[in-house]
Structure formats: structure tokens, C-alpha cells
Amino acid sequence: MSQEDMTALEEAQGTEAARLYLEQMTAHHEGAADMARDEVADGQNPHAITLAEQIINDQEAEIAQMQQMLTDL
């Protein structure tokens, strides 16, 4: 998140604050899932790969939940 994103979130209220938070957290989770996919594809440590696979599953589930919350706003 950029400083501009943080400022917009800090200044927002109500539904707008919720929307910004969910959008920014979705992007954050997508980044984590992308990093984990890189580990699954290129990693050497089986424990790290297993952890990365769990991270992908968890982050994708949370992304789906946040997308539903955005739809419900």
C-alpha cells in the first residue's frame, strides 16, 4: 500500500472505509498468494513448499470472503 492509499483509508468513513480496506487487503493477500506460488514452483525445501501451499489455500479463501463482502456493501 502506498502512503496515498493509507491516507485515503485513514480519511474514509463508513462504507467507503470498509470498501477501501477490503480492496487493499485483497491486493495484499493476492501478493502473498503470488509469492507462495513462486515458492511452490521454485522452492527446494519441502517444508517451505508445504507451508506455501497452505498459504495459497488460506489466502485464496480469504480473498473470496473479502470479494463477497465487497459485493454485499
Rank of each mutant, 00 (worst) to 15 (best):
E60I: 07
N57H: 10
H28L: 03
V40G: 09
M1Y: 06
A8P: 03
A27C: 02
M25Q: 14
A8G: 00
Q44N: 14
D72C: 06
R37K: 15
A8K: 15
E4V: 13
D72E: 14
Y21A: 13
R19V: 04
D58W: 05
E62Q: 05
N57G: 09
D38C: 06
D38S: 14
M6W: 02
E11K: 15
G31E: 13
Q13V: 11
I63P: 08
D5G: 02
E10T: 08
T15E: 15
A48S: 03
E39S: 01
H28E: 05
Q65N: 07
E11P: 05
M35V: 03
Q44L: 11
D42N: 15
S2H: 03
I49N: 05
A18L: 14
G14A: 08
D5P: 10
A36G: 08
N45H: 00
R19K: 15
E30K: 15
D42K: 14
G14V: 04
E10Y: 01
S2E: 11
L70I: 03
I56N: 04
T7S: 05
Q3I: 08
A41H: 03
H28Q: 01
I63D: 05
E10G: 13
Q68F: 00
Q13D: 12
Q3F: 09
D5S: 07
A17R: 14
Q67N: 13
I55W: 00
D34V: 11
E30G: 03
D38K: 14
T26I: 15
Q68Y: 07
L9T: 01
G43L: 03
A17N: 05
Y21R: 11
E23A: 04
T71W: 08
M25S: 00
T15H: 09
A64G: 06
N57K: 12
M1G: 15
D38H: 12
M35C: 04
E60W: 02
E62M: 02
A41I: 10
H47E: 15
Q68D: 10
A8D: 05
A17T: 00
D42I: 06
L51F: 12
A27P: 08
R19E: 12
D58L: 00
N45Y: 01
A36C: 00
L9N: 07
I55G: 02
Y21C: 07
G31H: 11
V40L: 04
E62L: 07
R19C: 00
Q68S: 10
H28G: 04
L22N: 09
A27E: 15
A12I: 03
N45I: 04
M66W: 02
A32S: 11
A32V: 14
H47C: 07
L9E: 08
E16I: 01
E30R: 15
L22A: 15
N45P: 04
P46L: 01
E10R: 12
A8C: 08
Q13H: 10
D34T: 14
M66C: 06
P46M: 09
M66F: 10
T26G: 06
E4I: 12
A18H: 04
E16H: 03
A8W: 05
D58F: 02
L51N: 01
E11V: 05
D72S: 04
E10N: 13
T26D: 08
Q24K: 13
A8H: 02
H47T: 11
D34S: 14
I55F: 07
Q54F: 09
M6Q: 13
Q3E: 14
